[in-house]
Design a binder for these strands. Structure first.
Lengths: 158, 158
DNA sequence: ATCATTACTTTGACGCTCGAAGCAACTGAG
DNA sequence: CTCAGTTGCTTCGAGCGTCAAAGTAATGAT
């Protein structure tokens, strides 16, 4: 087993961990992974249009509509007709939605952040350099990326 | 933006890249990401039972049955009753299935492998150490991990 | 023989995803 | 002002992935 394989295995462990994390998270919140992800996006930038969410998540508008429907039905978010442009619908989290976000276990990300911040300064630098290196080795061109871990569809967890 | 955020963003880029890769790959092969993943697993360990695939992929047997059905319908794999234990069904790739595997673009992994192997010795060591570090920061307990990149369901890519 | 276990398939239900088509509102050219 | 084009979102219809539960078949232990 050469080093290339070892590095691929480590990558796979990373993917796997985030995948499982998504399911865990969703289950704990009573939502699916993707629904939770929408809630996260809405929570980050509160007056948030459907199109913005779609672009952010890399899915179609139709998909967002369906996801938002479900979140509305569960009282997590609300639709509000925009005053400026009445074609737009702003999607805002309800109190319940915010509470869900705050109380989400966030086990994985928390664990990661805690461990990361416990590292020595030079170790942090090394990890950042390595991760960015790997990222650039993997992706051709780039897109927005926010400091929020999530697992995409992966997750069509049923 | 502190270093923790930077590291999270890099992680997200990695996840995103592998996610997109899965779709690309699948589309090129005329299969979905998950179907292709099954084919990969079958290709790796050829006499392969449904249960083995299910465990390897972290899904239920029922799901594997449904996925294998689709691969059979497309002539990618065959079911063969085991001689030893006639409850078991061995799933083996057909010639077409092997051809599909061989000719799969494998763009991302190829790109990664090529770049990784072009690195200096010490750089490889550094990356491996960093990736394993991150992996251990993310996953609590571990499971099998093979040197094959993929994106799980995540993705229920439709 | 019989009962429990194992391996797989079937069934029914749900979630995610999309493209296409539709509706409502805005915008710009004339 | 008006009409055509564009934009933002929703609805509809369809396919895929996923699972739990129930069913079938074969093995194994007693």
């Amino acid at each position: 087993m050469d080093r290339t394989d070892v590095s691929l295995i480590a990558l796979r462990r990373i993917l796997r961990a985030t995948e499982l994390y998504g399911r865990e998270l969703a289950q704990a919140a009573g939502l699916t992974a993707v629904q939770f992800r929408v809630l996260q996006v809405v929570g980050e930038k509160s007056p948030c249009t459907a199109t913005a969410i779609a672009q952010r998540m890399g899915v179609s508008q139709a998909t967002v509509t369906s996801l938002v429907d479900k979140l509305v039905r569960q009282g997590m978010v609300e639709r509000q007709r925009s005053e400026k442009d009445r074609r737009q619908t702003n999607i805002v989290p309800t109190d319940k939605g915010r509470a869900t976000l705050d109380s989400a276990p966030d086990a994985l990300q928390q664990r990661y952040v805690r461990k990361f911040e416990a590292l020595e300064d030079w170790e942090q630098s090394m990890l950042v350099a390595a991760l960015e290196r790997v990222a650039s080795m993997l992706d051709a061109d780039d897109l927005d990326a926010s400091p929020v871990l999530h697992t995409g569809d992966l997750a069509n967890a049923g």
